[in-house]
Design a protein around this nucleic acid. Structure first.
Length: 236
DNA sequence: GACCAGGCACATC
DNA sequence: GATGTGCATGGT
């Protein structure tokens, strides 16, 4: 645990993170994430988007919707082969069909197929449970918790990492937990803030930090420390 | 034709 | 514990 004095000395204050957020919000406006019409659609999208562009995920979700199976019960009744065929455009379709089946199996055996019951569980417990499902890793679990369950956990994805690393805010080898801790320690625990902040990082990552090693022309240029990565607190 | 995209599990050392 | 590999479609 840090003393108040050392907390004041750490690089990258809560105020810095607020300034970054406001800069992004002013520049891009509200992102209104997650792009999905229901909590269940968010969950399915979170699995389908693993290492896959969102455009391809949209095709797969459109297939599910056209067959009227974009809900727990109907999706659970599909065979692996039928589900795989519908989600083919999202890539890794056999693997993702299996992962969705694993998740549905969990939802029905543990929570009787009820998302309301599942999200009534406390955050820490449910996160552990989701991580125990084969095919659900930290990013997918946190996306489900935040964007489908409205639970306050920060999502770290390829965009988050890209933006932070390109601007030198974090060490290149920082892992998922460390990056998440950085946000948890600097931000108020607030679902709407976590939601919008992550969505804005994706937006700026798409617009500016994609291929260039440094992003001199992006809204975040020169906003953060020139002298090395930020300190990561180990406890929240 | 190479490279990339909103990961994750598993094998191997 | 660290590193490498398979999984697959569609856009640039």
């Amino acid at each position: 645990m840090r003393s108040p004095a050392s907390a004041r000395r750490r690089r990258g204050s809560a105020q810095t993170f607020e300034r970054v957020y406001l800069r992004l919000y002013d520049h891009f406006g509200p992102q209104r994430w997650w792009p999905g019409e229901s909590a269940f659609e968010v969950i399915v999208g979170a699995v389908l988007t693993q290492n896959t562009s969102w455009k391809n995920v949209e095709r797969a979700i459109a297939n599910l919707r056209s067959k009227d199976v974009l809900a727990p019960q109907p999706l659970y009744r599909l065979s692996h082969a039928a589900l795989a065929e519908l989600i083919r455009p999202a890539g890794y379709f056999r693997l993702k069909a299996l992962r969705l089946m694993n998740l549905l199996e969990f939802l029905f055996t543990r929570y009787d197929g009820s998302l309301r019951r599942m999200f009534a569980t406390d955050l820490s417990t449910l996160r552990k449970e989701l991580l125990s499902v084969n095919g659900i890793g930290p990013e997918t679990a946190d996306s489900i918790l935040l964007y489908a369950g409205q639970m306050p956990t920060f999502v770290v994805d390829a965009y988050t990492n890209r933006v932070l690393k390109r601007h030198g805010w974090i060490e290149p080898e920082a892992d998922y937990h460390q990056v998440q801790q950085l946000f948890h320690s600097r931000l108020e625990t607030d679902v709407a803030l976590f939601n919008e902040y992550h969505a804005l990082l994706v937006r700026v990552g798409n617009a500016h930090c994609r291929r260039r090693p440094r992003c001199e022309d992006c809204p975040l240029a020169r906003m953060l420390p020139r002298n090395g990565p930020l300190d990561i607190d180990e406890e929240r």
